[in-house]
Simulated assay, not measured.
Amino acid sequence: MADVSVRSEASGQQEADGGAVSSNREALSKRQRKKLLKQQKWEEERELRKQRRKERKQQRRLQRLNHQEEDGGEALNVRKRPRREVTASSLRLVVDCSFDNLMLIKDVRKLHKQIQRCYAENRRASHPVQFYLTSLGGQLKQSMDEKDKGWVNWKDIIIKTEHYSEVVPKEELVYLTSDSPNVLEELDQKKAYVIGGLVDHNHHKGITFERAKELGISHAQLPLSSFVKMNSRKVLAVNHVFEIILAYLEKGSWQEAFFTVLPQRKGAVAVDQDGAMTQEKEEEGSDSDSDPDDPDTPDQTEKTA
């Protein structure tokens, strides 16, 4: 009798469990059916939604046309900028990226941003130069691959893994470095001017000048002291040097080029031809340019001019 009672209880428990499973399956099935019906309704109304979007777009177009007719056909799209007249320059600017092993990865990323700025400014310039990026590899290339995969599609730029001395004849090269005793008075369209791609916080002072001498190539510094006196160090970021040259090609004046590009925090003051100083820009506080990701920030500079 005991065995029969146990079997009876076990059978009853199985039936109860089976009923619970059946109930759960039925509830789950209802949710799935509801979800399926919702998906089917969404698919059925796809074309209707597409048609409604098309009608709204046509209505907006008709409204714009009506407004233009009311204004005598002279209405302009304010979002469109007038196209600038562009005259390409034969001058070459080379960013030398052969200092990769001398930088920490955080400084390499800053250099990457400066190069991005150079590329963008050259694309917008009225007299774009022939832009070269040489010795690309190592940490810099890794940063570009990770942070800006679209760089492989950049236009109007020549990117080389080789050293610049293997890309441009030595007699055509001029290394721009603030340690050079030579002052650059004018730009020679037949020359290729090299900018040192190094962000080192002055840990490797004079290295670009020494490299230029070792290779036996010409060197010079921008005529910054002849036109500008600054409250801060006479140290410019890669993109500053690049932009100053673009501005000079457009304006034909070193002084205008310097004051167009130099950050306000440097407290730039114009120097007259007689040697006197006239206030052109006042330092408005370092907070105005304090974005740590901005290539203009002080800790991203290197002696290149």
Rank of each mutant, 00 (worst) to 15 (best):
E43K: 06
Q32S: 13
R46Q: 13
E47Y: 03
R49L: 08
I115N: 04
R33F: 09
D107W: 06
V86F: 07
Q32V: 14
D96W: 02
R81A: 12
K110N: 13
E44C: 08
V108I: 13
R49D: 06
P82L: 04
A88D: 06
S90W: 05
E74P: 00
L36A: 13
L62E: 12
R79L: 10
R84T: 05
E55Y: 06
E70M: 15
K110P: 00
K57N: 08
V86Y: 07
W42E: 11
L37F: 04
A88T: 09
K38D: 14
C97L: 11
R46C: 05
G73L: 07
R83A: 12
K50M: 12
V78K: 15
R60K: 15
V94I: 05
D71I: 02
D71S: 07
V94N: 02
L37P: 01
D107L: 03
G72V: 07
P82H: 12
E69M: 08
K54F: 10
K57S: 13
R109I: 04
Q32H: 15
K57Q: 14
I105E: 07
S89A: 06
E45G: 00
W42H: 00
L104T: 09
A75V: 10
Q63C: 11
Q40V: 10
K35Q: 15
K106Q: 11
I105A: 05
M103Y: 07
D96E: 04
S90H: 10
Q116G: 11
E47M: 05
C97P: 10
R61W: 10
Q32Y: 15
F99V: 01
E55F: 06
K35R: 15
K35L: 12
E45Q: 15
K57A: 14
V95I: 14
K113T: 08
R84S: 01
W42N: 05
L102I: 03
F99K: 03
F99I: 01
L104E: 06
R60E: 10
S89H: 05
R64F: 08
Q59W: 11
N101D: 11
Q40G: 00
R60M: 13
K80H: 09
T87L: 13
R61L: 09
K35E: 06
K80E: 08
Q114T: 09
K50W: 09
R53S: 09
